[in-house]
């Protein structure tokens, strides 16, 4: 009983980013098999403290359970600092992450841009205890989005097509987009595209940005590629052939001591099946009107895809 209260209490702390505290708590509870190198035991899957990461963690767990392995989740550990710490200590065995940002976390100076370059650079960049499994084609990254009307009017398919219409285009995005290397400077350098006007909207690609795009107050906006609003409003995601936006493939980061070959195989199987569209649909179920539980949404997806 005491143990239970402790665990709940400390998991709460983990939620606000005190990952290391949670680690010692789990150690005290003596439930996790860490440091023993015991494969075949329960795989503990952690996640970052935002919805999509929790959904993917639940998918990993549901898939492992479906394949006859035992897995549990430790949702919402915190920011990258917290869950990478938990992985290195072995309190959790797997955490879903995004390839580009994961690489930047370990190597801020990296020159890697394409999905392949990033996956090639990752193994040596990661700390010794960690490794990555196969990346998924599913990506959640910044992307320039237009309405289907605007795409048709200007004949837009890729960001490169925007350059010819620079003078007619206002770009909406978070304020940092004006200054970050992947933002206006990158668009100018890679595509020669300088929008007539930049409209800073400080809601991180949220409803105001989407509304501005629908109202044609901005003609293109920076949204996340797994935003359900893209599908709901028939927006067109412009291709990024020059990789202006760093690739962000969903990839399981693992503590090798914690994850058996069998478990890794299952996770690779999931990665191969998971597409960006799946993430959009799952995000919509969990954050949209349905407000589905991430566990339920993940389990439904696994039941449907994993045969």
């Amino acid at each position: 009983m005491t143990v239970n209260i402790n665990r709940r209490h400390l998991l709460g702390l983990a939620g606000i980013g005190a990952g290391t505290l949670a680690l010692s708590a789990c150690g005290l509870s003596g439930e996790t098999a860490f440091g023993s190198g015991s494969t075949g035991d329960t795989v503990i899957i952690g996640s970052a403290d935002f919805t999509e990461s929790q959904i993917i963690a639940e998918i990993y767990a549901a898939a492992l359970n479906k394949r006859g392995l035992t897995a549990e989740t430790r949702p919402a550990i915190g920011a990258r600092e917290a869950y990478i710490g938990a992985l290195q200590e072995g309190t959790v065995g797997v955490v879903p992450d995004y390839s580009g940002n994961l690489l930047l976390y370990f190597d801020a100076q990296t020159k890697a841009q394409t999905p392949e370059e990033i996956m090639k650079a990752l193994p040596s960049a990661l700390s010794d205890q960690l490794s990555v499994l196969d990346p998924s084609p599913a990506e959640n990254k910044d992307s320039l989005v237009v309405t289907s009307e605007v795409a048709q009017k200007f004949g837009l398919k890729s960001i490169a097509d925007l350059a010819a219409h620079s003078s007619e285009i206002t770009l909406g995005g978070p304020p940092e987009f004006a200054e970050r290397s992947y933002g206006l400077p990158g668009l100018k350098k890679n595509y020669g595209f300088e929008p007539a006007k930049f409209s800073p909207i400080n809601d991180g690609g949220g409803p105001l940005t989407v509304q501005a795009l629908i109202d044609d107050q901005v003609q293109t906006a920076d949204l996340f590629s797994t935003d359900p609003a893209i599908v709901k409003n028939n927006f067109v995601v412009l291709e990024d052939p020059k990789n202006n936006f760093l690739a962000q493939q969903v990839v399981p980061v693992v503590n090798a001591k914690q994850v058996s070959v069998a478990a890794a195989d299952v996770l690779n199987e999931v990665s191969a099946l998971l597409k960006t569209e799946d993430l959009i649909a799952l995000n919509d179920r969990v954050s949209g009107e349905e407000k589905a539980n991430p566990t339920t949404a993940a389990k439904d997806w696994v039941d449907q895809k994993l045969t």
């Binding site: 909406g172 304020p175 940092e176 004006a178 200054e179 409209s199 800073p200 909207i201 400080n202 809601d203 105001l208 501005a212």
Partner: peptide, 14 residues
């Protein structure tokens, strides 16, 4: 400045 307007808040939010 939370939306696309000016004023001194621009410096704060940017």
């Amino acid at each position: 400045a939370y939306i696309n307007l000016g004023g001194l808040g621009r410096y704060l939010i940017d």
